[in-house]
């Protein structure tokens, strides 16, 4: 273990700079000034899988790795919706998850924001027209930002999350 730790000290950090994404930044800019002031420069995020194939979860988990290191931006995942500012929702919302999603939304204190991540969350993806799905996330709870992709890459997810922050470039 000593060698692995030593390696970590001696090598340059693996964490990479994030290229800006004008499209997602513009989405964030559409949030009103009041929202952006309240969100400040730190977000507590609660992830909810509302029926995804778990491809999105794989990439969301990758955000915590050294390459993407989402905590450097003041972003962190929390274990309870009661601690969250933002709900990051994936998947077409299944009938079985609808109530859980609504209750998780209600359990999140206001002010709160919702990000629908992945093609399924945005528009049901290949699960459009499925009799077992309610629809996109926006069909169940209000959504502030959509991040497309199947699944969205970690870079794109980070760009979407940063679009919510007041001044992401300042970090």
């Amino acid at each position: 273990m000593r060698n692995i730790l030593l390696d970590g000290f001696l090598r340059r950090p693996l964490t990479e700079d994030l290229p800006p994404d004008p499209e997602l930044a513009a989405l964030g800019a559409r949030l009103d000034a009041e929202s952006r002031r309240k969100l400040g420069r730190s977000l507590a995020i609660r992830e909810i899988d509302a029926g995804s194939c778990n491809g999105c979860e794989l990439e969301i988990n990758a955000l915590a790795t050294a390459f993407y290191d989402l905590e450097r931006f003041g972003l962190r995942f929390v274990a309870s919706p009661r601690h969250a500012d933002v709900l990051l929702v994936t998947g077409p919302v299944t009938h079985a998850m609808r109530e859980a999603l609504e209750r998780t939304y209600r359990a999140t204190p206001s002010p709160k924001w919702v990000i629908a991540a992945g093609d399924c969350a945005v528009g049901c993806g290949v699960y459009a027209n499925s009799p077992a799905c309610v629809g996109s996330v926006a069909a169940v709870i209000p959504v502030d930002i959509h991040i497309d992709g199947c699944p969205p890459t970690p870079v794109r997810l980070l760009q979407g999350l940063l679009a919510l922050l007041a001044s992401p470039r300042a970090r």
């Binding site: 995804s52 999105c56 794989l58 299944t94 079985a96 499925s130 799905c133």
Partner: peptide, 26 residues
């Protein structure tokens, strides 16, 4: 996470079926 996979596959083209199959467990 029941998404009606088999109901969607029935009647789908082979190409669409392949896309759905690739999204059953990411």
């Amino acid at each position: 996470t029941h998404k009606g996979v088999e109901a969607l596959l029935a009647g789908a083209s082979i190409a669409d079926g392949a896309k759905i199959a690739g999204r059953i467990s990411g």
